[in-house]
Computed example of a mutant assay.
Amino acid sequence: LKGIELQTGSFTLRQIKDATNNFDAANKIGEGGFGPVYKGILADGKEIAVKQLSARSKQGNREFVTEIGMISALQHPHLVKLYGCCIEGNQLMLIYEYLENNSLARALFGPEEFQLTLDWPTRRKICIGIARGLAYLHEESRLKIVHRDIKATNVLLDKNLDPKISDFGLAKLDEEDNTHISTRIAGTYGYMAPEYAMHGRLTDKADVYSFGIVALEIVSGTCNTKHNRVKKESFYLLDVAHTLKQEGNLLDLIDPRVASHCNAGEAMVMVDVALLCTNPTAAARPSMSMVVSVLEGRASVSDILTDSSIYASKFDAKKLYGRVEGNDAENNSQVKSMLRDGQWTLASST
């Protein structure tokens, strides 16, 4: 973070206590990677989300300072905006914009009473927005950043249902002289690229893979991972997509809620892009800027095909993640619990 000036506001603990009614439990809206997240209202009426660092958090002060530095350097319509921070006594907090429509995960496949009606144009807009945000992180910002934990719970929706990527607590700075970062595994199984899940090898192409999974979820309206504890079976959306492609029935992947009024051509482009993004060979995955071009119709799917860009028909997501299904099932149940409780989640539940 050398040379980066923090363009963030400084809040006093008194301001934050007043805004959250002294961290009233009624204002708690989620549990993030750092700790609890509270909704608050500042004296000027502005709504905020306060991410409070938990003493028992897996993340510590170093990560906290890193997050402040990174997010303060980033300004983009599809990234959650950081208003400032509060560092007072033993209190460490980040103050974000508050987003009214919770997470993409809850909107698509949360409890029925919390689901939102997302028509096809809205889903396409959300998918393109996420892609734009990632393209900015990877290619356009002053810092080259790998998010590491792109998933539907880490995409928040504002009042206009525009998507914003959240939770940079897991993000890493990719220094210019490094082509990859070998680091501890910090993503979410089911969304993690094979080379990252198995070898801890991290590049921006790991985010591309995760985006591909989220794109499939947007088209299908179905969570990537499902677990049947009775039958002890797991379901991976990526495997289903490959099976349907081999059978020539990819249209069956479209969410029945939008199938009747969906632009089938646009949906197939999104699925084709998703399958290319989830290629098991990292180098064969497209850049996010190219993904944006294809999704917006300025380029075709064939433009991002390479010799190694074959649809990975032999890739078995269930087999890859099978050895960690126990952990994944636990993580998935935590997410489901959070969605069921109707909590607005600013950050990853893992």
Rank of each mutant, 00 (worst) to 15 (best):
K46L: 10
I304A: 06
H261P: 02
C86M: 06
I130C: 04
E217Y: 07
N228Q: 04
G212H: 05
P36A: 10
S348F: 03
N327H: 15
V214Y: 06
V240T: 08
D174I: 08
R201N: 04
R340I: 03
G297K: 01
H180L: 04
F34G: 05
M192A: 13
V291P: 00
K226R: 03
V65D: 03
E195L: 11
C262G: 00
V230T: 13
I130D: 03
T183I: 01
L13T: 11
G45F: 14
L53D: 02
E176L: 11
I150Q: 08
I304T: 00
K81M: 06
K39Y: 09
T117M: 12
R142E: 15
F235G: 07
P77N: 06
R323M: 10
I165Y: 05
T183E: 00
R148W: 13
H76F: 02
T281F: 03
D162T: 08
I304V: 06
I145F: 02
G3T: 02
N61I: 00
A19W: 05
R132F: 05
M70H: 02
V155A: 07
G326H: 08
E63R: 12
T345F: 07
A259T: 14
D158H: 06
I126Q: 01
T66W: 14
S141Q: 01
A264W: 10
S234P: 07
G133T: 09
A282Q: 00
M192K: 10
R14I: 05
Y209E: 03
S349C: 02
L157K: 07
Y321N: 01
L99V: 11
S308A: 15
N102G: 10
V291Y: 08
Y136Q: 09
D177N: 05
A241I: 07
L42K: 08
N160K: 05
T20E: 01
V258L: 02
S260F: 09
V50Y: 01
T203G: 07
P111D: 13
Q75W: 10
L339H: 09
A283G: 14
E266C: 10
T66G: 13
K144M: 08
E325K: 04
T66A: 01
L238R: 00
M198E: 10
C85S: 03
L346V: 15
Y321M: 05
S348C: 06
I218D: 09
N27P: 13
Y236L: 09
S57G: 11
S220P: 00
S313Q: 14
A215R: 11
L244W: 11
